[in-house]
Simulated assay, not measured.
Amino acid sequence: MPIFNQLHHVCVLVRDLEEKQKFYESVGIGPWFDYPKSGAYLEFDVPNAAASRAMRYKCCDLENFQIQLCDPGELDSPQKRHLDAHGEGVYQLGFEVPDRNAAEAEGRAMGLEVVARGRKTDESGFCYFDTKAQAGVVLEIRKTPDDQKKFS
């Protein structure tokens, strides 16, 4: 199965989470919840760990995928640099995979450069590939923990 086959989420960079959430709710999109940043990572290779921890997210589960609103905050990160350079809008597409490690290896075998990655003890986690120049967005693969799965 191709690694970019099952869309999990679309991530939109924003400057004001509450303002954007209110707009989405005004057009009937909701409810929203805070992204569950939980559990320790065995591996956490990101450009700026403090910036990653400080990012704030609001999520909304629709019938077939999730919308994520991300306020990257003030610390330096790829998301903050993208927001500053291009303004608010879609930053990444996240795809659910059954095996995070195998999907990362497959992406690398395709010649995709990894810009951030994380793996937890339950083998859930993420991997962001540097695809903005080719795809217009960052492509991410992720394995959602079993207790958080909605889209399978």
Results as ranks from 00 to 15, higher is better:
A85N: 05
C60R: 01
V14Y: 01
K58E: 00
D99E: 03
A50P: 05
F129S: 04
S52L: 14
R53I: 10
D34M: 04
L13C: 07
G39P: 02
V12P: 04
G73K: 07
V90F: 09
F126L: 10
K80G: 12
G73R: 13
R100E: 13
Q68I: 07
N64P: 05
V27D: 00
N48K: 06
F95T: 02
G89E: 08
A40M: 14
D84T: 09
C70A: 08
D45Y: 10
F126Q: 00
G107L: 05
D34G: 03
P98S: 14
R15S: 14
T131H: 08
E74M: 05
D34C: 07
T121N: 11
G73N: 12
C70G: 09
S77H: 05
A54P: 08
Y91T: 00
E104A: 11
T131Q: 04
K120I: 07
V14A: 10
D130V: 06
E123M: 15
R15G: 14
N101R: 13
L93G: 04
E18S: 13
E104W: 06
L62T: 07
G118M: 02
R15L: 09
V14G: 05
R108K: 15
Q68D: 15
P98N: 11
S124Q: 08
L75I: 12
P78T: 01
R108V: 15
D122C: 03
E96P: 03
R56C: 10
G73V: 14
C59N: 11
E19C: 06
L62M: 06
R119N: 13
G87M: 04
A116H: 02
V27Q: 02
A102S: 01
K132P: 04
F33M: 12
G125K: 09
L83R: 01
K80F: 10
C127M: 00
F44W: 10
L17P: 01
A51G: 09
Q21I: 15
A50F: 01
P98M: 10
